[in-house]
Design a protein around this nucleic acid. Sequence first.
DNA 1: CGTTGAATTGATACTGGTCAATTCTAGTGG
DNA 2: CCACTAGAATTGACCAGTATCAATTCAACG
Lengths: 251, 251
Amino acid sequence: MSTISYLNAVPDSRRQAAARPYATARAAVLHTISQPPLSTFQPNQMIFCEGDPATHIFEIAEGIVRLCRLLPDGRRAITGFLYPGDLTGISATLRHAFTAEAVTPVKLRRHARSHFEAAASRSPELSQRLFGIMRDEMSAALDQLLLLGRKTAHERVASFLLVVARRASGIRTRSQVDLPMTRLDIADHLGLTLETVSRAFAKFKNDGLIALPTPHTVILLRPDLLCQLAGEDEGDEEADRQPQRVAAWAH
Amino acid sequence: MSTISYLNAVPDSRRQAAARPYATARAAVLHTISQPPLSTFQPNQMIFCEGDPATHIFEIAEGIVRLCRLLPDGRRAITGFLYPGDLTGISATLRHAFTAEAVTPVKLRRHARSHFEAAASRSPELSQRLFGIMRDEMSAALDQLLLLGRKTAHERVASFLLVVARRASGIRTRSQVDLPMTRLDIADHLGLTLETVSRAFAKFKNDGLIALPTPHTVILLRPDLLCQLAGEDEGDEEADRQPQRVAAWAH
DNA sequence: CGTTGAATTGATACTGGTCAATTCTAGTGG
DNA sequence: CCACTAGAATTGACCAGTATCAATTCAACG
């Protein structure tokens, strides 16, 4: 907690980044169940805490959320960021495995776990999707393990930019990317310091790989080179990675 | 791949470590289904490869397996080790997300995914357990993210020793721990070099925290201090970590 | 405009990596 | 049973990539 306990303002430009129409891709499944009212959170406000009883599942309607784990002395790892349409709390059972905090102003729906599980046991499609979400989460976690364990600072930052670009836009290589989170958030996600993140951005800018119209807007000028730098083999790895859909299991 | 492609011998002392009666805790569920014959693998032999079609689920009967992800240039992250009784391939659907290789001589059962899924859809308990296994995997991955992102070399090695001690023995603080994997495997799991791992062991030994009768046997002399070093706060760390509790979700 | 937190940039320190040599271990063959 | 050998582990010297500490600069809101 030492790093963030205040509730301060976030620039308007960053608020806008939160209200993107990406959403609903995943959450759509839920809307067949019920539509709880929206809860609102201010930037840096805690949504739920590691260790809290996991009574609800959360569906992000608007804004960006960070998921963190902390060491007793306050060192922080951000295990991931949530975007509109994302769900969290699915893989928890008794207690949450991480803390969730709003990065930008957030609106979300809380689905009671009991309702949720009842619905899942009735709908094979729903439980199917839940498995799919858990798989995606696991896959992202494995990518992150490789990033943290074996990539250099520059490679980590390049990887991050590409992940955010793909996720926030849906389109594979949209040139303009919003970074609603701070340099410290990025650093805690990449296992670096905020200075190192800043220097990596500066270098990419000097090398002509990106442009930084504002600190929270990146334009990918050479996504190809970034891909190479990130050690992702830019090719069409996605192409065959998720042509997914297997029969089904879990009733 | 570049690091290991030969099939060499493993000391007999390490073979024994593999044949531990831990097992079956998790695999027990499966035995209600069927009992395929055992397949055998030599040390460093590949069991399946990242990207392979995930047609089977594997149940380790004997021996130790490592799960790796590789960067194009050969840098390797070991995302985890499997012990007797562990399953893998559950969270994969179309293709495996990592490579699995034998560390010691391994015996395992291959369960056809189709059978498996059929059984899961018939048995709520089974699919329930599968969810549980996936949760455990995710929880371990999150721990590892914190370790790789924010712990020092010494902290990582201390954490590793404790995890292995708990897992291999089941008992919380069994003093003698076998390390069937090499220093390089440990290093690739902890995001370090083998030299750094070796130096950490040497330091712990000098400081009286552990004894090293052989390079593959560790005795935890002061598990309490190791715990502290690992940043696990053995006790009730949660206590003062989150004194706060925002009213939060008053929508 | 003024103010405050965020971001950038610079100087320096230090952890852990790299390269290299030596020792150890365990399996092999006499 | 004991030397022999190959790979593993240890240890040392040195170096590089990041972290740390510190000072500006910048951006956005009041």
